[in-house]
């Protein structure tokens, strides 16, 4: 299956996070309990498509689009 970033996931879809292309994004996500591989569901967006509203590991999170682009998975 082709790899994609969290920024390309549609609303309601489940994304499996495998890796990060930025260490700062990685440590911030890990501190919030998001250790790959982890399922992330996109629940919505704010006006203009940013930030994203997602659910990961029973936690609701807001992630900016530029940071979502650094999260790689399927």
């Amino acid at each position: 299956m082709n790899l994609r970033t969290l920024a390309n996931v549609s609303k309601g879809e489940i994304f499996v996070l495998h890796n990060f292309s930025d260490e700062n994004v990685a440590i911030s996500m890990m501190e919030l309990g998001c250790i790959p591989p982890i399922k992330i569901q996109v629940l919505g967006w704010a006006l203009g498509g940013c930030p994203l509203y997602v659910k990961a590991n029973n936690t609701l999170l807001a992630i900016r689009l530029k940071d979502a682009q650094k999260m790689i998975g399927i």
Binding site: N24, V25, I27, S28, M29, L32, P51, Y53, T59, L60, L61, A62, I63, R64, D67
Partner: peptide, 11 residues
């Protein structure tokens, strides 16, 4: 500070 914005939305 890290230029990463991640915010937990509490219940």
């Amino acid at each position: 500070e890290r230029n990463v914005f991640m915010l937990e939305l509490p219940v």
